[in-house]
């Protein structure tokens, strides 16, 4: 009987941990406003700008009422490199529920150029194609903004 309780408790804990880890990349289904931000530009100022926009959305609507996903592809993928100078801001925004998607096609292309696969920010989730991710999100009612 006791063993069963322990097992149940362990399973419950695992489930809670799994839920939390999933929530970092999960859409906020009950958000009033859903925005997908595109970064595909090589200009470093755009990196700052897209993070500023995400931050402003969170500040304006509140963390629970806005769902923000930043999709990086092409030259804009540099934003999601592990050692990017904005990594602390990315970490902070991820803590506020902002999701970061990295284009796998771009990662492959960049790997060929570099000769090795670039290490990505731990807050970034890879998606098959950045542009497809944006199209899918728009279909789901997200507003596309390209700062």
């Amino acid at each position: 009987m006791k063993l069963l309780h322990v097992k149940q408790m362990l399973l419950l804990c695992m489930a809670v941990v799994a839920m939390f880890s999933m929530s970092a990349h999960a859409a906020k289904d009950f958000a009033d406003v859903k925005v997908v931000l595109q970064i595909s530009d090589p200009n470093p100022m755009k990196q700052t700008l897209v993070l500023n926009v995400a931050n402003n959305l969170i500040k304006h609507y509140g963390q629970d009422r806005v769902d923000v996903e930043i999709v990086a592809f092409g030259p804009g993928l540099r934003l999601l490199f592990a050692e990017n100078s904005n990594k602390d801001r990315i970490s902070s925004l991820a803590g506020n529920g902002v999701r970061f998607s990295a284009c796998s096609n771009t990662v492959k292309a960049m790997s060929k150029k570099l000769g090795y696969a670039p290490e990505l920010n731990s807050n970034a989730k890879t998606v098959p194609a950045g542009v497809v991710q944006i199209v899918d999100l728009v279909k789901k009612g997200y507003t596309l903004v390209k700062p």
Binding site: P44, F81, E83, S85
Partner: peptide, 8 residues
């Protein structure tokens, strides 16, 4: 230069 955010 800033890591991964420097211009060409």
């Amino acid at each position: 230069e800033p890591t991964d955010s420097a211009p060409r």
